[in-house]
Design a protein around this nucleic acid. Structure first.
Lengths: 127, 127
DNA sequence: AGATATAATGATAATGATTACTAATAAATT
DNA sequence: AATTTATTAGTAATCATTATCATTATATCT
């Protein structure tokens, strides 16, 4: 049974409190401002716990994982130059029903989809 | 300048010759059937080279990377139970223009998108 | 064809992110 | 208060990937 420790609350607050899709090292640095002696292993353990509970999302980004406190359905844009991940808050109505379309054609159970755009972000484009 | 070694040709042939979206270890095992003393580092080096040349694609899958010899535009389905990746060869006409839609709304340069479906595949569903 | 330059290789060491381990701690229950 | 057990800090271990380096092989240029 979950005990909702101070460490877990701190990790969740950090992930929920940003839109920068941070990695574990950044979350570790931030939580240390509240709990200076927190262990990096504790951060990883609580991130996994929060993912299993559906409280945060995990993003697969090659060399390391990043985390997202926004569990609402939304899309991402990843800049190929600075590697920053931006939220794409578009209402893509024409994307909504493609789960059903794929399910029908493949015979698979389709529960979700992940859509990520790639290119160059505005800030990188202007420099 | 590229020298198109036997090792590179073997790695490319292996990645092109399957639809299973293999990881580096599997590609290593397969190429060893042709070139028994090939080094794992050589496999990694050539995979990276082929990616930079646009001859194969790299898939980000959490703990390790997987590779795709199909560079045509297509989508994927990842089974949450067996973790197999299937090609989704649908013509999703309504998805084609979303790059432009996102570019217009964000001001970013949008060159591509990656769309992955998730759920349970047919084989896992039936067992 | 032979000489030269340099890309590529095999073997192994190093790296970096993540996970496992362990003894100690702290919170819920009795 | 005693007991149970999840959680922690600290550290070691793991695993995929990358870097290093001496050697080999291939393309290019006379």
């Amino acid at each position: 049974m979950s005990r909702n420790s101070e460490q877990r609350k701190a990790v969740l607050a950090v992930v929920r409190g940003t839109t920068c899709h941070p990695d574990a090292a950044w979350i570790y640095e931030q939580t240390r401002k509240e709990i200076p002696n927190i262990s990096l292993g504790t951060v990883y353990r609580n991130l996994r716990h929060l993912i299993n509970d559906g409280e945060i999302l995990e993003l697969e980004t090659g060399n390391y994982k990043r985390y997202d406190g926004n569990i609402q359905n939304h899309y991402h844009f990843k800049c190929a130059r600075c590697h920053e991940i931006y939220d794409v808050d578009l209402e893509l109505d024409n994307v909504i029903n493609i789960n059903n379309e794929v399910a029908h054609k493949t015979g698979f159970i389709v529960t979700h989809h992940y859509l990520e755009f790639g290119g160059i972000c505005k800030r990188c484009r202007e420099t």
